[in-house]
Nucleic acid binder design. Structure first.
Length: 434
RNA sequence: CGGGGUGUAGCUCAGUAUGGUUAGAGUACUUGGUUUGGGACCAAGGGGCCGAAGGUUCGAGUCCUUUCACCCCGACCA
């Protein structure tokens, strides 16, 4: 993409209502803009990031044998009445009426719809197991949306549901999904932890959360430094206790409640996390309620054993920045950067700079590198600030040193600038972005 | 859903206590010129139903009533 053709409205100042780094930088960088409380538009850069995350999620799930589907976003209220969740979820569900006065819900989640989809279509144990997922818009009418994309009302979430003929098989799938999620978050370049969790309102037993570690995280985790043990603090104290406590007294309570040492012997620490994934074992809660049965080996009807798996895709966009930013802006990981390489022509009036920039641009594009050519008329300082704000992992600076046959490669994360022979920069970049 | 706050230019905000020229600044934008390695400088411009509706008044951004929206703290949540 050429900067001169791109719609990337960056600003020097953040709107006054943004408090978190991710919120500020995503708006300042021209990734998103707010449409209403908890409602966001994704502008070109934001959309690219979203799609990159979506692609990684899809690839890993498909590899693990999951089937992608797409359920209708608007769902008849009857679906929710049958499971009792119309009542249970209450005002969280946004209800609308059509011209015939029929009531509908904008899906906040899709257990019911997915059970209905599979019911009477997968009818035998021979049809199982099945794992169906979608990456689709959800709507939850939060009492108080906040923190930009971290707690919107409308959001993009991957939700998956698996169907099994036995609990053992369901647990096997649960473990497979845990492993798959680890691959996904690793590929995205994130520092994350898997922790034991409460299963919350959705019900069921056996529940694990995936948290991106970040100071602004809403959840407090207890994690072991040595092994992979971790737990959400909610699982250790009941809600009333946690209400009254500040962080320091958590530590005191910890001593009385649990050992300061992990069972592996290493020390336990507190971390803040942003929940970006949640997997849980549902059992037959929904299949029994909705009478979704299959025939077992003996020809007996049984409700499906189920598990459910979520990943907050749009939340991840913000979580990545919460974990990866500095005072100047975003620092995207290689897998999530809207453009991995930014070619900066310092002075657009300098024909030799333009020539090299164009050549590199074409060459990198031909090599399937996601590359931006900054051919804007701005001055050097402006372009640098803009590149830092947007957070391209690498910027090739074509400028003054070109007279000596040199260009600079600027690494966003470290802010290091290295000089490279102009003829060697292509190979250097290809090596760096691997 | 409880408590608090804010709505004035694309963005950040003055102006509102005490009503009174043509509603301001910075930034962003347009044009011309000078600049050209860290969000440049000079000059000239464009841009506002002062959130909305009603009311008081000779006169309302400012006072009164109603309403809508958004934000913050809490309770609740991928």
């Amino acid at each position: 993409m050429r900067r001169s053709r791109a719609f990337i409205p960056t600003t020097k100042e953040a709107p006054s209502d943004a408090t978190l780094p991710s919120h500020k930088f995503l708006i300042r960088g021209g990734f998103i803009n707010q449409q209403g409380a908890g409602l966001y538009n994704f502008m070109p850069l934001g959309k690219i990031v979203l799609e990159k995350i979506r692609a990684v999620v899809k690839e890993e799930l498909d590899n693990a044998g999951c089937n992608e589907v797409q359920l209708s976003f608007v769902t008849p209220i009857g679906l929710w009445e049958r499971s009792g969740r119309s009542e249970a979820m209450g005002k969280e569900m946004l209800r609308i009426k059509d011209r015939h006065e029929n009531e509908f819900v904008l899906s906040p989640t899709n257990e019911e719809a997915m059970v209905e989809l599979v019911k009477n279509r997968a009818t035998s144990y021979k049809d199982l197991p099945l794992n169906l997922y979608q990456i689709n818009t959800k709507f939850r009418d939060e009492a108080r949306p906040r923190y930009g994309l971290l707690r919107g009302r409308e959001f993009l979430m991957k939700d998956g549901y698996s169907f099994h003929s036995s609990q053992e098989d369901m647990i096997r799938e649960f473990d497979l999904m845990e492993a798959t999620y680890k691959k996904i978050f690793t590929r995205l370049g994130l520092d994350f932890r898997v922790v034991a969790a409460d299963s919350g309102a959705i019900g069921g037993e056996g529940s694990k959360e995936f948290h991106v570690l970040a100071n602004s995280g809403e959840d407090t985790l207890v994690v072991c430094e040595a092994c992979d043990y971790g737990a959400n603090i909610e699982t250790i104290f009941d809600a009333e206790q946690t209400d009254a406590l500040n962080e320091k007294s958590y530590e005191e309570l910890m001593e009385s409640k649990i050992s300061k040492r992990c069972s592996c012997g290493a020390e336990l620490h507190f971390k803040k996390g942003i929940e970006v994934g949640h997997i849980f074992q549902l059992g037959t809660k929904y299949s029994a309620a909705l009478e979704a049965h299959f025939n077992d080996e003996n020809g007996r009807a049984k409700p499906f054993e189920m598990a459910t798996f979520g990943i907050g895709v749009s939340r991840l966009v913000a979580a990545i920045i919460e974990q990866n930013h500095d005072e100047d802006g975003c620092i995207w990981t290689k897998a999530t950067a809207p453009y991995v390489v930014n070619i900066m022509i310092s002075n657009i009036k300098d024909a030799s700079q333009v020539k090299l920039g164009e050549e590199l641009y074409e060459k990198l594009k031909a090599s399937h590198v996601d590359v931006m050519l900054d051919d804007s008329k701005e001055r050097f300082g402006f372009k640098m600030k803009d590149a830092e704000l947007i957070g391209f992992p690498y910027t090739i600076i074509i400028g003054k040193e070109l007279e000596n046959g040199l260009v600079q490669v600027y690494e966003r994360r470290t802010k290091e600038n290295i000089s490279v022979e102009m003829n060697a920069v292509y190979n250097k970049i290809m090596e760096l972005i691997k």
